[in-house]
Design a protein around this nucleic acid. Structure first.
Lengths: 241, 241
DNA sequence: CGTCTGGTTGATACGACTCAAATTTGGTGG
DNA sequence: CCACCAAATTTGAGTCGTATCAACCAGACG
């Protein structure tokens, strides 16, 4: 698999082999099922091999917030073993192929592999940066800007792992998912998507997203890609290499 | 100083000494000045020794979101050296005493000090968990709930570093700061704080916060402390020890 | 074919924003 | 110690973005 880590640095054949070895244990999770649930003791680091997943939190009054989305190549919780219990759940959006890496495998992966260790650190820092951008998104952008921003972010992240090109990508989120991720209602998401369509910015149907005018989308969303920290050597490699 | 790290694990005298040594270089920053600005190359890890600071992001249209708050004992960006440029700014809320730890000092601090390394990892994981909770806060809670939640979180974090007790703590944020942190306008923050006062939940004046009824506040805010991950051995030590 | 999930539409309500002004507080210098 | 100024808080009136509630529709699936 084309790991997201290669967006940070070129890995050696050795490194890649070690990564593949660590990811040898995987399982499939059906769409809309939990991979991990809040309260669980952390037992594995998860690496999404195929499909989409999300991190979400739920409130006693039933409200649900998706706080992060995972696409292929994303690690879920590097180093999470330090914590006693998960403070959130991880759920499959689509049917999901996910590697389960034990603490021992994680140690084996990083031990004597400084490039991987560094790349994992980079991954964690980017994940944190994305979380901050979401905070900004929810706090300061209107519904229209907010959705545009989320769509661009996901498109760009997919592009870095070779799953998007020419403005086009798979997009399995329902309008309900988008609502939970943006803090809007699904009704309002529906109307806002229609606006984006009407304005000639996107096409979105049958789980396929097409961003028609990336430059106008960037303006609308006030999208600044700096938080994805893609300005590294790996950026210049063919993502499918 | 009573480091936040001790909330995670008891440190040895040696560890504490190493920590003090790493934090020997400090400076003062005037209130409302930047400690680090977006775009800067990361040069130091910062550790707040005294005063409050915030992490914020700004949009081209001038809107500003505070995405995190730092109180004494908080580290700002462990391991940030990996990134080429800051994607956000760090600003002083009050006059600030802040330690500046170089990459070399950071290495010296963690090298051969597994407890500190682990404690720093814990710190990073908690920081990320707080960021997720803020995402939830902005996405799903009403203004009233949201402010209540923020007040409780800050109170609890201050308590763990020995700077709050009996429901009382310093609280230097202006209503404008609260607005930027909660994604509300300062006018609405003002009215919502009045509601919280009228309902007998808090007193807040002259930069002093008093939470009058913690249990009702917890209910109102739907506050679940699990995300602060305080259930570790360090939790049982006197924070002033 | 009936059922279900996801998407769409319409009517109405309300929480939070905007703009503008008044008041209070805290700091500073005379 | 008081006068002054800027910053922060408070109040009021009016508006708007988004939520709510309730149908209805289309395609997927068994």
């Amino acid at each position: 698999m084309a790991s997201k880590l290669e967006a940070f640095t070129r890995l050696s054949a050795d490194d890649r082999e070690a990564l593949a070895l660590a990811a040898k244990n995987f399982r499939f999770v059906e769409a809309r099922r939990d991979v991990v649930s809040e309260g669980d003791k952390p037992r594995f680091v998860h690496l999404v091999l195929d499909g989409w997943a999300c991190r979400y939190k739920q409130l006693p009054d039933g409200k649900r917030q998706i706080v992060a989305l995972f696409v292929p190549g994303d690690f879920c919780d590097v180093n999470v073993f330090i914590l006693k219990a998960m403070d959130h759940s991880i759920g499959a959006i689509t049917r999901l192929k996910v590697a389960m890496i034990s603490p021992e495998d994680m140690n084996a992966l990083t031990w004597e592999r400084p490039r991987i260790t560094q790349a994992l650190w980079w991954h964690e820092l980017v994940t944190a940066a994305v979380q901050r951008e979401w905070t900004l998104n929810l706090g300061q952008r209107s519904a229209y800007e907010r959705l545009a921003h989320l769509l661009i972010e996901l498109y760009m992240r997919l592009e870095t792992v070779g799953r998007a090109r020419n403005g086009h990508c798979d997009f399995p989120l329902t309008q309900g998912d988008l609502a939970d991720a943006t803090g809007l209602t699904s009704v309002h998401v529906n109307r806002t998507l229609q606006e984006l369509r009407r304005d000639g910015l996107i096409e979105l149907e049958r789980k396929q997203l097409h961003i028609l005018d990336m430059s106008r989308m960037n303006d609308v969303a006030m999208f600044n890609p700096n938080y994805l920290h893609l300005d590294h050597e790996g950026r210049h490699l063919d993502a499918n290499a």
